[in-house]
Design a protein around this nucleic acid. Structure first.
Lengths: 344, 344
DNA sequence: ATGAAAGCGCTAACAT
DNA sequence: ATGTTAGCGCTTTCAT
């Protein structure tokens, strides 16, 4: 290992070739100013010496980073892992780098990350907010800085900003509609915080479907909380303690459904035999295996790719008006899923 | 939106306060040179004006990035999502930024990413190689550049480099041992490519356990391929076509197991009733729900945190000798898992 | 076709 | 305690 290693720079190449830095710089970028002969010579030497441009210097000089900042609440969660992967792929295809940060559902951490991404002078910012984000001042600061902002799936209460989301109301509605058609009347909803769109819209879809189907809403069966496993777990316990068990639960997220499962299990209740559960999300890691939940499937790949495309549009055309893209969900019933996919 | 927005810089603050840039720079960093009074004044103004240091300039000047580059084959895969999340958390605690790139199991893409991370002058490089990586020249280039390198889980055939891995041989051994104790003799292995450690070690553990237990090895039942679902699917088909079905399959990864499940399903075979399957990995997204596979559980959180710690050690002490950390696995049998966790 | 000079925003070394 | 100078590695005028 070469301790005293110092990366070679333009100047080193320039000296060896007895030309100026500028010539090297231009040659490496195939600038028409430079003759084919010297360009070839420069490239050959650069290759031989393993020259690597210093991107910090390059970006500083160019006053742009070619980076898109990304802030998500979680990674180890199927929905986000899948969206992130899609974002990376789309960015790669378009020659952008993604700088990913993880807020761990903490709005304070989210704030810090956004500030440091702004400090990095990212060309744009892709954000899926935490479940506790209420203060939107940081986002106002972003737009005020002139940095394009696109929200993905989770959008704070704030207008005039581009976003890519799914039709949560429709999705929730379809889950309740399915239950009603199946003859259930004892229907519960364990939902997320309503300060952000997905919590609110899923709740609204639930209410709307209940009303239109004239199913009475039992307030003990409508729980508001976080989006995680512990929230589903606690939510179910709250319901159980009232000594009146629903037949069907619409959970706002897959982790919530897992928490419900765990709590039900403790009380000796089986899913889906005793209680049928439907949730947003789909664990495609398991797409071949049987599952005990029904899913309101979200198009994670599209969410990611549309968000990046929208971002690039905004970067290239800062005048563009904010655009809100809404994608559709699909209700997938329990094991029929596994069977269908395997058959297809 | 302020189109003509230009981020404020040290100089702007300096002018307003009628002091020099250096004073500002030092004040903001709490340099003892500067009096408490001016420091306070500077900070107040910086705050008011929303000053954000330009990290490109800062890093260029400081000749270090405070970034650690990370290259993984996949994100939307429980194992990697979990390791990545742990890496981000540990880096955050230690004030490092992670720059994540995804090779999508393509060694060519991996190479490109490593080069661009080197161009970014990352302080160190964390890599989990693709399943097809054979050419190690890029890694030699990294170490030759004096950039600390730590491999995570997947290590190419190359010595003298730090790594954090799990005890794959032991893990594989335990999976076979369990099968033998249960009375199975018709045992198959659908494994990954043996050009990288995890494919090779899992295969070796399998062979070793079979030999020590004096179980005959049927070559039709030992498949080498990739680590993905399609590889498990194709692997099982190959076995099935020989018209002799094993009782037990040890799959190298969770995706392979999923592929096996899908293929078995097509032939009308059930798992675990007709064939029992054990694989590396654990889908903690499902840790509460029953599962049809047995798992050789890998400590994903520790893999991530140990890797970052090791990396920081190497960054702080470039003289440090390479260290190879090997973590243990744990065999988890089917549904006992769900029951245990819920009970606990 | 090639090069000299200036500057991107910051920090470190050396005055004052 | 504060300021001056120089330089990080690159790109962009503007000459030649």
């Amino acid at each position: 290992m070469n301790k005293k290693y110092r990366p070679i720079k333009l100047e080193d190449l320039a000296k060896k070739l007895k030309v100026s830095k500028v010539t090297i710089s231009k040659a490496l970028r195939d600038h028409p100013d430079i003759s084919a002969a010297t360009t070839a010579k420069v490239k050959e030497l650069a290759d031989k010496l393993g020259y690597m441009p210093n991107v910090m210097a390059k970006n500083l000089s160019a006053r742009k980073s070619n980076n898109i900042g990304l802030v998500v609440p979680k990674i180890a969660h199927f929905f986000f892992a899948s969206v992130i992967e899609s974002i990376y792929n789309t960015a790669f295809e378009n020659n952008y780098e993604i700088v990913l940060t993880v807020s761990q559902e903490k709005s304070e951490r989210e704030r810090k990350h956004i500030l440091s991404l702004l400090s990095m002078r990212v060309d744009g910012l892709l954000v899926s907010v935490t479940q506790e984000t209420k203060d939107i001042s940081i986002f106002e600061r972003v737009t005020h800085s002139g940095v394009p902002l696109v929200f993905i799936d989770r959008v704070p209460a704030m207008s005039g900003i581009s976003s890519v989301t799914v039709n949560d109301i429709e999705g929730a509605y379809s889950a309740i509609d399915y239950a009603v058609k199946k003859g259930y009347t004892k229907i519960a909803h364990i939902g997320g915080f309503r300060n952000i769109n997905i919590g609110r819209a899923r709740y609204e879809g639930f209410i709307k479907a209940m009303r239109l189907n004239r199913i009475p809403i039992n307030n003990n069966w409508v729980i508001e909380g976080g989006f995680g496993e512990e929230d589903g777990y606690n939510g179910f316990k709250k319901i159980y303690e009232k000594k009146n068990i629903p037949e069907y639960i619409f959970a706002a997220t897959y982790p919530i459904a897992l928490g419900i499962y765990a709590a039900a299990n403790e009380y000796g209740l089986s899913i889906p035999e005793d209680i049928e559960v439907t949730c947003f999300g789909k664990n495609t890691f398991n797409r071949f295996t049987p599952t005990i939940f029904n899913f309101i499937d979200q198009p994670t790949q599209e969410l990611g790719s549309e968000a990046v495309k929208l971002m690039i549009e905004q970067i290239n055309n800062p005048e563009a008006r904010p655009k809100n893209i809404i994608l559709n969900t699909e209700l997938i019933i329990g094991n029929s899923n596994a069977k269908k996919e395997v058959a297809g």
